[in-house]
């Protein structure tokens, strides 16, 4: 289920503007990798290139390669739709489908792939996914109600349940807690700790304590100034990044001297 991602010499462009420059990194399976850095440093943009979601933005394209267990995501003939079915994504703001019930939300991705599914298989998958997202106990008696009636933190866990129902190889999370209160944030962080047993988890966060709490590896991105592309400055074990970084810029950022 869990796969390794290798990124080599990746540049991301929005039209003529280069947003991210020359990123090379390896993301280990069954671990949590956090991207940190100041606003506009391209970490979210870079995250989106890992499941080709940046292509939704007009004019965005990449140079370089992203391979998942040896398979190039940008190879000729690769269908971005198939890529996204294997690499799930959770967004900054919770986005359950408002017109669907909780149950339908969980099944939304699966029904795209596999229309023929027995009712009992569906029940089973819904329960397994919601348990996996630590949401089952809270919603088991109202699976037929709209997902938009849940609290923000519950909605975000519903989105995680929806993503893991697809049994993805990798789970990308773009600032999943930035719209949530501290208690909901804690619930999501606990969940991330559990998810890494089965998935490769990549999380973008503005919150350095969060990166320190949940991740095994941390990558620090930075920009030289407005209009300059974002760059990967340093990537290492989280412990090392936060206690003994090898780059001055990383240390300045961690210690709050800027950003």
């Amino acid at each position: 289920m869990s796969k390794r991602i290798d990124v080599a010499d990746l540049n991301v462009y929005y039209g003529k503007f280069r947003a991210v420059e020359d990123v090379t990194m390896t993301i280990e399976p069954r671990s949590v990798t956090a991207f940190i850095g100041p606003s506009g440093c391209g970490k979210s943009t870079f995250l989106r290139t890992l499941n080709r979601m940046h292509e939704v933005i007009p004019g965005a394209y990449v140079e370089g390669t992203v391979t998942m267990d040896g398979e190039n995501l940008y190879g000729p003939g690769v269908d971005p739709v198939r890529v996204r079915r294997q690499i799930g994504m959770v967004f900054q703001r919770p986005n359950p489908f408002p017109t669907m019930s909780i149950k339908e939300n969980v099944l939304a991705g699966v029904t795209l792939n596999n229309r023929r599914m027995s009712a009992s298989d569906k029940e089973e998958l819904v329960e397994r996914s919601l348990r996996g997202a630590n949401l089952w106990e809270e919603v088991k008696n109202r699976l037929g109600l709209p997902g938009s009636g849940l609290s923000g933190g519950q909605q975000q866990r519903l989105c995680i349940a929806r993503a893991i129902a697809m049994a993805p190889d990798v789970l990308l999370m773009d600032e999943p807690c930035s719209a949530l209160d501290p208690i909901s944030t804690l619930a999501i962080e606990d969940l991330i700790g559990e998810l890494k047993a089965n998935y490769t988890v990549v999380i973008v966060t503005h919150n350095m304590q969060q990166a320190a709490r949940v991740s095994d590896t941390t990558a620090f991105f930075n920009i030289a100034g407005t209009g300059a592309p974002g760059k990967l400055i340093e990537m290492d074990h989280t412990e090392k990044i936060f206690h003994n970084p090898s780059q001055k810029a990383t240390e300045d950022y961690i210690t709050g001297r800027f950003g």
């Binding site: 890529v83 967004f91 939304a108 991705g109 795209l112």
Partner: peptide, 13 residues
Amino acid sequence: PRLHEEAALALGA
């Protein structure tokens, strides 16, 4: 909402 469109696309729609 763009959020919902992206939610669907990210699920491989």
